[in-house]
């Protein structure tokens, strides 16, 4: 297994946001979901740069929606996690879990 099979921290966060949003996942909702849950300001550029990288790796797929007037006639780009992406999320999640197993982070290191 190569190191490339694991997701980076922000890639992991994006993939989890896509899984949560399901078919409503596009730039605005992904950005807002991450800001709402992590309480950290995220730029739309960071979201798209990561999504493009994930798409190149085959972890997500995208399609263009219909153009809407509130977006100045521009289309939304919807994203969906692929089966390969779900496997990568699970693998990364298990790796993180095994690293934190047995650690009492709140009591020992607070």
């Amino acid at each position: 297994m190569s190191g490339r099979d694991y997701l980076g921290e922000f890639e992991h966060v994006i993939m989890l946001a896509l899984l949560r949003l399901d078919d409503r996942a596009y730039g605005v909702t992904v950005r807002q979901e991450i800001e709402f849950r992590t309480k950290r300001e995220v730029s739309i550029g960071a979201v798209y740069a990561t999504l493009d990288r994930l798409e190149a790796k085959g972890y997500v797929k995208s399609r263009l929606g219909e153009p809407t007037p509130e977006r100045g006639g521009r289309s939304k780009r919807f994203f969906r996690v692929t089966a390969k992406g779900v496997t990568a999320v699970n693998r990364t999640h298990r790796a993180l879990q095994s690293m934190t197993d047995g650690l009492d982070l709140v009591r020992s290191y607070a």
Binding site: Y48, L64, G72, K76
Partner: peptide
């Protein structure tokens, strides 16, 4: 913006701005 982001990025920003 790249070709694939040419519509999505400005559209997303305009939507949130409004």
């Amino acid at each position: 913006t790249s070709d694939s982001e040419a519509e999505a990025v400005p559209g997303d920003l305009l939507e949130e701005f409004s």
